[in-house]
Design a protein around this nucleic acid. Sequence first.
DNA 1: GTAGGGTTAG
Length: 557
Amino acid sequence: MIRKTTTNKSSPRNQHSNIWRNCTNFRTLKQIHALMIVNGFNSNQYALRELIYASAIAIPSAIHYAHQLFDKISEPDLFMWNTMLRGSAQSSKPSTTLPLYARMEKCCIKPDSYTFPFVLKACTRICWVTSGKIIHGKVVKYGFEWNKFTRNTLIYFHANCGEMRIARALFDDMAKRDVVAWSAMTAGYAKRGDLSMARRLFDEMPSKDLVSWNVMITGYVKQGEMESARELFDMVPKRDVVTWNAMISGYVLCREYQRAFEMHEEMRSAGEYPDEVTMLSLLSACADSGALDVGEKLNSSILEMDEGALSIVLGNALIDMYAKCGSIKKAVQVFRGMKEKDVTSWNSILAGLAFHGHPEECIILFEEMRRTKFVPNEITFTGVLVACSHAGKVDAGRGYFNLMKNEYKILPNIRHFGCMVDMLGRAGLVEEAFEFIDTMEIKPNGIIWRTLLGACKIHGNVELGRRANEALLKLEHDESGDYVLLSNIYALKGEWDGVEKVRKLMDDSGVKKEAGYSLIDSANQAFLHFLLDSKCQIPSGNRTIKSVKGKNMESVM
DNA sequence: GTAGGGTTAG
């Protein structure tokens, strides 16, 4: 048995209403909605409040439905607006919160003390610094800066987005600092890697609760300081699932998979139930270590949860785990069996096929994806281009590369270029690969030149090989002399693991990765106008959202 | 009906 992360919280009103108390899943929700329409309650304000609450908060998977319902309500009240903001902020798409708030302002609905904590939570989750600062201004304008909840959320926002000075000023200027404010500051220092400052706050806190302990433990875990984390873990007066998850994810991060698995056993013995997050950590441990047997057991546990309803994230993690453990058939089976999928589900299976010996199937499945509503992203194309490279399909690869740029407006990143160079090099088109590098909008990194160098060796092109080698040496001399030195030291000692680590470090940091851009859709126009109204400078025509590592980042304006 | 901690794809 594992417990689901999201609990179905009931509003006080729900407790008085049997029909809503029984509304615990999407199907029932739709039935109740149908009953409302049939019985003429679909314009009753209280019934609508319940309906919005159930779809936006109580049943997290229904948030999309909540948005559709909400759009049809002619004059939603403040409670409904706040409920929608709350639901959006905690959903998988927090970026929908700000356009919603902008619409609220446009409708001349005055916010109350509940409004801003939700909006700020969204800004924090997606690190929308500029928008969050504008919201901070609104908080002051409407006079909520002294509201305890709002102020704590503001501190958390600034601390989490790297503005420790602002967070500190807000914190110092508080009449009564509660444990939430202390924990927010501790988390902020820990996040920027200042563990000694974080620890000082943690030790100075007048009182600590479970969350403060978890914040400090997580701080150590994120910096790989597992010994300190363990020390606190042994000292903590009470543990919850988050405490266990922090430790498990820490051991996975520092590749101590066996310890992570042992922690999981220990956790169950202590009577704590794993949740979705525990499972995600453990599945990634299986994927990285090839522990198929453990992965299969986890799969069984997951299926016991919630009458076998598999969440999208867990389905995605299972696909990845099976693919990386060499069980590609099981990976496809999980993918096919998923009732709901997202773009990550497609990316997981496409990458699984591409990287584990099934490039043709990857390409076929990608064509299937294009026939669905799912829009591929930059990660999708990494998988597809790898598949073309491994299958030797040069024409298809060139086609998909252009499709990505022209149809989906995705700027190719260093991995995409790497795939193309690899593909051309493998096919013996070394000269074309060289010309291709010349056309790159971003500076080639070590991987690109090494790939080309390898191809030149195989195909016996001495002249181009020499040029690739020169470029590689120049790059390493210019940008990563220390890394090379370090790498050589490892190599001298025969520590090839170290060589690989340094090389990875070089390739990850040596090249400035350009962010991909995508257009804000028309639904977000209200948000744009909101930003413009807020005297935020946006150069004309620069209506962009940056997409970095799959996460939407707001424009830097 | 409000705030803080843990998370999957290259």
